[in-house]
């Protein structure tokens, strides 16, 4: 994930200089990587707490990042530390490899590709108009205002439409899982 490293490092340096937008992008991107990393190790429910703890830790100690160091290694160092802390709290094994830093970034790409496939399948069940809105906002990261301008709907109409679409997607997922259980 050389490209990601370069991009993230750029955002981090901009963030250290006070660029809120770049910093927000960095935290959001790292949040995704961290979620996948922790979920594989402690399960999805404990993972979200660890993601937040790690983001807070990164934020409060961000001055310790030296630009000469790979950002990946720094983030992984903190994530690993928080994971060991979690193991200690829950009395599980406390040995976490020191050199999985590349894994932190690589594995997320794989999982999000898988997640994307599932999302595409579900999206196909939505009517065309709703699908475009959900795609713009939830997948491509457009703001509600941008999506509203593009579709000609009012902002609150966009919000309601997307909300309902997501809800019906959620119901589809639950139905799918229910069917899976019967087999």
């Amino acid at each position: 994930m050389i490209e990601a490293e370069g991009q993230y490092r750029e955002w981090m340096l901009a963030g250290l200089a006070g660029d809120t937008g770049a910093y927000r992008k960095l935290l959001a991107a790292l949040g995704g990587h961290l979620r996948a990393y922790f979920a594989r190790r402690v399960g999805p429910s404990a993972a979200e707490d660890l993601v937040q703890e790690t983001l807070i830790a990164m934020h409060s100690r961000r001055a310790t990042y030296e630009p000469s160091q790979p950002l990946t290694a720094w983030v992984y160092g903190i994530a690993r530390y928080k994971l060991i802390d979690e193991y200690r709290r829950t009395r599980r094994r406390a040995s976490v490899p020191l050199d999985e830093a590349p894994d932190l970034f690589a594995a997320d790409a794989v999982e999000s590709a898988g997640a994307k496939r599932d999302v595409e399948k579900l999206m196909a069940t939505l009517p065309e108009g709703k699908r475009a809105l959900v795609r713009a906002i939830k997948l491509d990261g457009a703001s509600v205002a941008e999506a509203a301008a593009a579709s000609g709907l009012s902002e609150s109409a966009v919000k309601v439409t997307v909300h309902r679409a997501i809800k019906s997607l959620g119901e589809d997922v639950t139905r799918d899982e229910g069917r899976g259980d019967e087999h």
Binding site: G18, T20, Y23, L27, A28, G31, L55, I56, H59, R62
Partner: peptide
């Protein structure tokens, strides 16, 4: 987590 990220970004000061 999204709210947290927004919160942390708003707290950003140059270091």
């Amino acid at each position: 987590t999204d709210q947290l990220i927004a919160l942390l970004s708003d707290d950003l000061a140059p270091v």
